[in-house]
Design a binder for these strands. Structure first.
Lengths: 321, 321
DNA sequence: CACGGCTCTCGACAAAAGTCAAATTTGGAT
DNA sequence: ATCCAAATTTGACTTTTGTCGAGAGCCGTG
């Protein structure tokens, strides 16, 4: 009588409890098991996505500032996490909000592109579970063998796991040492298919990286701090899906970019919903670049960043007649 | 200090509790209110649809019988409520399941047609709340001034209320005394618009009525028991959205139908998702008629009814070579 | 300006849910 | 065949949550 507690049993318990509104002990009676088991099944049901608990993110878009930002930056939707009004750690609040927004944007049957970074991994980590079997999560860029837990493939897999979706990983390094090798690898059928499949995505999730010595690209050894500084002088404004963009949001013409295996900006721009999440206030310029380049249609930021964006947009509008 | 507890506060509490996973007392501290108030806000949040708790209805479609029924009857999806395995009252189980399925089928921006009957009202009554502001719920058929609580307009309004959606009522009686009057009324701009708007629906929810003295049409005085019996002899097989259909699922050619103000069968067939819910085993023949007439693409029934449908389909298949 | 009626809030109790270590069962390995 | 490790179930205990009636602030009215 201790067979694998068939998914069926979890489902029945969840059904009686959440849909019918029975109490745990009533459910236990119905199913002839102890109440403790019911409690355990219910936890599993939540962790498996058999039951879904979601809170509307309406409040964060209802904000007047969010509306104005949507207009000023021509974005489809903006969510603003009210800093310091809620929790001790505001960055967590942004990630929690981003996870909710993400789940709200996902539709059954969708194909989702996921980039990488601390922000993306944090979101994956706190995201609640869902049951979206016919969803595919694809990795947007090559891998970086880093000691961190937010490697591109890990971000992809973790999100796929949370959604009960299929995860498609990228079996290639993010950066190669020569342009020839990168070109050759991009032509490989396996890689080519993955790259060309990116424009079929319905939704993309990424953050933006800063061009400084703290960048993951430096930490993971893809670039040295000196190289990064040099690129900055050449006009580098931000990092998206492992690639370096200039202030206009276009790919910077540099050797590094030519050696990268990642989703082309053109493929990204084709994706219908591009959700960008920015936690750090320091990423103001990189974010401006990404927006300028049309790399984001949906935006989740903190109140402080929102205010800066709005001020900036206002100033630009004055300058331009 | 006893101002209307702004929706904002409810939202904040729900956010901290459900999205961040804080305990009620932690939320109470954050917001500087008592834990009891937090508990109350959370209840309101659930009742308003600010938080959504839904359980996957997967199990009920996974059933082998459901799959076979989908094939045999050429339906898009079938859900089977396992009778007597669950609760004392099996009909409640069907309604709870139907409500979940309904909520699962609704999409933001949808237009939903709702008919009327005890079944539909039961579903509305147990349906959990959701926050779908841009959804419109339209009434599929004219009104019947009945002493019951499941008048067409009530079904529509209740569902609209649960979804936080707009409700569009039909300000016309279901049946008129002469065909001329009915024709004239149908030509009225207000009514005509409502009728023509029905084919724009994305989803319809209805049940099927039996052709007997217990029918709502008789109880509400639209027809006498004798008239009903006569119609039955003329080939009436079921009642859908207040109209009488024959065994082939086509409108029966009779005076009553010509005097009715309701959604034409053609308009209904245009709707993408037609969800039919049947609670009573006695409605076997009416259901067969509705299916034959292509009036249903999605079906929720009890296990017993499912078995009968399957047996019937098997028998028909044998007869036809 | 005092008065009910109203809604919101809180403290305290009761009910329900979560948790843990021990007991039981299973399936596979020796 | 027997034993071990892993997984599941349970009863007892603790923590968390739901609820009720009393009290307090607000508002329109007499």
């Amino acid at each position: 009588m201790a067979i694998r507690p068939a998914e069926q049993l979890i489902h029945k318990a969840a059904w009686l409890y959440y849909a019918h509104g029975l109490r745990q002990d009533e459910v236990a009676n119905q199913l002839n098991i102890s109440r403790a088991s019911v409690a355990m099944y219910l936890r599993k049901a939540r962790e498996t996505g058999i039951v879904n608990i979601s809170t509307s993110t309406q409040l964060f878009t209802d904000d007047i500032m969010a509306r104005r930002l949507e207009d000023a930056l021509k974005l489809d939707a903006v969510w603003i996490a009210p800093e310091n009004a809620y929790l001790a750690d505001p960055s967590t609040d942004i990630a929690v909000l981003a996870a909710s927004v993400f789940l709200e944007l996902v539709r059954k049957g969708d194909r989702i592109g996921v980039a990488w970074g601390r922000t993306v991994y944090t979101i994956a980590d706190i995201m609640s579970y869902a049951d979206l079997q016919d969803v595919t999560v694809v990795q947007l860029c090559g891998n970086l063998g880093a000691p961190y837990s937010y490697r591109p493939d890990q971000c992809t897999m973790e999100i796929a796991r949370r959604l009960n979706a299929k995860g498609l990983n990228f079996y290639a390094p993010l950066v190669l040492s020569t342009e020839e090798l990168a070109q050759g690898l991009r032509a490989e059928p396996v890689i080519r298919d993955q790259l060309s499949g990116i424009s079929d995505c319905d939704l993309a999730l990424y953050s933006i990286g800063a061009v400084d010595a703290d960048s993951h690209l430096v930490k993971c050894g893809a670039l040295t701090a000196a190289e990064m500084a040099a690129l900055r002088k050449e006009g580098a404004a931000g990092v998206i899906a492992g690639q370096i963009i200039d202030a206009g949001g276009e790919l910077l013409d540099c050797s590094y970019n030519r050696r990268v295996i990642s989703a082309g900006l053109a493929s990204l721009r084709v994706i219908g919903k591009r959700l960008m999440v920015v936690q750090e206030d320091s990423k103001f310029e990189p974010l401006l670049a990404a927006i300028a380049g049309g790399l984001c249609t949906h935006l989740v930021v903190g109140a402080h960043m929102a205010q800066r964006l709005l001020d900036h947009a206002g100033a630009s509008a004055e300058k331009a007649p």
